[in-house]
Design a protein around this nucleic acid. Structure first.
Lengths: 323, 323
DNA sequence: TTTCCTTTTGAAACCCGTTTCAAGATGTTT
DNA sequence: AAACATCTTGAAACGGGTTTCAAAAGGAAA
């Protein structure tokens, strides 16, 4: 691979001049510029990004740390991040952690030592609080809060309101026995959604019924079985996310339970699959793309000094799994 | 951020010694080693990966270039790649190209100038042939071939056989009017699958019927409408992938057409959603994970000198959308 | 023609971890 | 005690762009 010094030799100028031609950082004599461009072309030179970022302390990269790269919520978010990053001349690199603290720590130190210009992270581990506070790289937490007022940004959608919306919708639709398939207690967004559901229940004098479930569809499957056993009179289910809603639907269907006639079902997130599945899934939409876009903008504009919170509003999308 | 020279000063040794302690590349006096470790701990030093990879010409990273990061086939593949890469002490960075040649070229030059240790690419653009041939970084094409015998590896699943399997299954199940929703002509894997379908049709004296469709579910939706208009007597559909199969199912369902009673449907890929959807999707499985794992192994073991082809076998997974 | 200002240019330092090389230290053999 | 082998260690060079700084060159004003 040709280096800038070889190009310089070919064009009979100094490396500095070549650098100036490449980056347009200073005026260069037209004749020399032509020679340099010719030399670059002939040698097939491409500037070495590593050397560049070593000096610049910037790699024009946004790092994304997520608990799963197969979960559509995160891929749709990452997709938006990547697209936006590209628009601003940045790349994206994804790290998958499976929610594992060690992997998260690794990912952070890896990304910072790669000179990424910003990190978007979705995590629930309180342990990371100190690390993130001492991290010089701009960081925004997305979807899940690590700790309010920790340095960095926090982008989320009003989960409490989302939980309320879902519960209210089912009650309005005549449900008397609503079960909330709540996410893990450790996940802030899941706790908030549950709280929204709970408050509506107490306000309306409806019994609280819930069951815990992580965000995977395998667990969605087994938890639905358990749910039906524990709450045989259930007529409305709020799922912790759309993937789980899909698996709940599968089990109900298998059991011959009709949706929405016997049980009404509402998901959460509005991933594109919610619209694509049959029947189409009623769900509480989060503006997934907008959240990703906002995260990138905050990072690039360096709006993460101190603590910056940005809250989006959820929206109920009524489709076919509720009346 | 502390540098190795600061650590050296703190520990009262030379930077070389610090480097040797970090990497265990040479014996270091126990007492000095202790001082160095103490200094590292106190200063919170982490080696700068950029400087490291500048010298080493390796970033311990595998680059992945895919046409979409929301398509489950690619995310499941990337997930396997990431997991395997991690096991070998490598990271993964994903580039999304939307099938755009310019973005693909950019991604390649970006990744090589980042000193990635290997590239996994899924592309159909013949234009890249020369670039890939001249690329010093090990490359493996996955799923789609760029050109046989081009330098690098090529990992795929026998698509011709997959097309045959799907067609044979439908014929055995009594289908008389089978429509192949074939993928884009530009995509080698799609061409091969179609060829498999076609050959079975001629062998069995069945009429060839097909319609083109890209791998997005939006097009899947509109193409199904067109399909039903053009082939009103259709009783079997082979989809170019599972996502399209899901959208085909949606349209059929909407029209009141029963699956599998009126029309039998077989997908392709066996993404995890195929199992999760209701009804469960009969599909031709590709060993997505194994393909990803193999790609990483080939790259890390530097088995890509010359041309290395590795073919997996497809497998019919009979579920609920066929009789 | 001299002086001053502006522009262009290359040498060298810089970013920071790694490695080579040779010197210094320690130990062993004869 | 001399000669030799082995280990430990730091100085310096390296990788490849970028930037600073000062010199050189060109142009304009006096």
């Amino acid at each position: 691979m040709a280096s800038i010094r070889e190009v310089a030799k070919l064009a009979n100028v100094s490396p500095s001049t070549v650098s100036r031609v490449i980056n347009g950082t200073a005026n260069v004599d037209e004749e020399k510029k032509r020679r340099v461009l010719k030399a670059i072309d002939e040698s097939g030179f491409t500037p070495n990004e590593v050397a560049r970022s070593l000096f610049k302390k910037s790699s024009k990269t946004i790092g994304v740390i997520v608990p799963s790269i197969t979960n559509p919520f995160f891929t749709e978010m990452s997709s938006a991040i990547e697209k936006t990053a590209n628009e601003y001349g940045y790349r994206m690199t994804i790290c998958n952690t499976s929610g594992n603290v060690e992997k998260e720590k690794n990912a952070i130190s890896m990304l910072t030592s790669m000179n990424v210009d910003g990190i978007v992270i979705t995590t629930s581990n309180q342990e990371l609080k100190k690390i993130l506070e001492n991290c010089e790289t701009p960081i925004v937490a997305i979807d899940r809060v690590i700790s309010k007022n920790t340095a960095g940004g926090y982008i989320h959608c009003d989960n409490y309101e989302g939980g309320r919306i879902a519960a209210q919708h089912l009650i309005q639709n005549g449900c008397k026995s609503i079960v909330c398939v709540r996410g893990l207690e450790s996940i802030s967004s899941a706790r908030e959604r549950y709280q929204g559901y709970l408050d509506v229940c107490t306000e309306q004098g409806i019994r609280e019924q819930s069951i815990r479930c992580d965000y995977s569809f395998t667990e969605g499957l087994t938890m639905t079985e358990k749910l039906l056993e524990e709450f045989p009179d259930v007529d409305g289910i709020i799922a912790c996310n759309d993937m789980v809603a899909i698996s709940i639907y599968k089990v109900l269907c298998r059991r011959g339970i009709r949706v929405p006639e016997d049980i009404q079902l509402v998901g959460y997130d509005n991933i594109s699959l919610a619209h694509l599945m049959t029947p189409e899934l009623t769900t509480v939409a989060q503006p997934i793309e907008k959240m990703g876009v906002k995260a990138v903008k905050m990072l690039i504009r360096k709006e993460t000094k101190g603590y910056k919170e940005y809250i989006f509003s959820p929206e109920l999308i009524i489709r076919e799994t509720t009346k």
